[in-house]
């Protein structure tokens, strides 16, 4: 994966039947890159387990997690830091910036960010003005520092019109839907996989 400038991708994936695995695979970079997770719908520990299930190797000195799930615990060995709840955008943003700075100041030039997921954030934070301010701040930091951001959202929690508006801070959108097997368990869901489409950033 080559990048000339930082890129931010919004990936839609249904919560029911979605595994986040295809998204996680995008975040497994080279050994000298940093990785920052922000989790609101699963704990930091669960996120690290998923990362390792997908073939990633968790390395504390180049990785960190902001856990805003309300159910997670701080972990010094795993570099997991907690924020009170998904509605606390101030806490998420400050902790994210702080950890990002720490990774960069330790000599890591490029940081990948995985955000699981925006649906929870939108559920707890009704004011779209605050959401845009939050998204611009995170995606702006990623873009100006030549990083990569993958943000997951459940499309069934938002209207298509709202999704189109939320797309604006992002460079591309990828849609992932559930597999045939899952669709059989959940009638009405169909299988469709699209590659991550970007505008012109050259990501995938």
């Amino acid at each position: 994966m080559s990048q000339q400038v930082g890129s931010n991708i919004l990936v839609t994936e249904p919560t029911v039947g979605g595994t986040h695995k295809s998204v996680m695979k995008l975040l497994i970079g080279s050994g000298n890159e940093g990785l920052l997770f922000v989790t609101t719908s699963q704990t930091g520990r669960e996120t690290i387990d998923l990362f390792e299930d997908c073939g990633g190797r968790y390395t504390k000195n180049r990785m960190a997690v902001v856990d805003a799930s309300e159910e997670g615990r701080e972990s010094v060995p795993l570099n997991i830091r907690t924020v009170s709840r998904p509605s606390n955008l101030t806490g998420i943003n400050i902790l994210y910036s702080s950890l990002y700075e720490q990774l960069q100041s330790s000599g890591i030039a490029r940081v990948r960010t995985g955000f699981y997921d925006l649906s929870s954030l939108l559920t707890y934070n009704g004011d779209v003005r605050t959401i845009f301010r939050f998204l611009h701040t995170l995606t702006g930091r990623i873009k100006t520092s030549e990083g990569l951001g993958i943000f997951v959202i459940d499309p069934e929690t938002q209207s298509e019109q709202t999704l189109r508006s939320l797309m604006q801070p992002f460079d591309g959108r990828g849609d992932t839907q559930v597999s045939d097997e899952t669709a059989d368990r959940h009638p009405g869901r169909r299988r469709r996989h699209r590659g991550v489409r970007t505008h012109d950033q050259g990501v995938r």
């Binding site: 009170s84 101030t90 943003n93 400050i94 700075e101 100041s105 939050f134 701040t137």
Partner: peptide
């Protein structure tokens, strides 16, 4: 101020950029 020293729960929607003076 470190993250722990900032009362981030009082103003949950105050989205700002954060830069620590402690990092050289």
């Amino acid at each position: 101020a470190t993250f722990a020293e900032i009362d981030n729960e009082r103003s949950e929607e105050m989205v700002v950029e954060y830069l620590s003076k402690r990092i050289p």
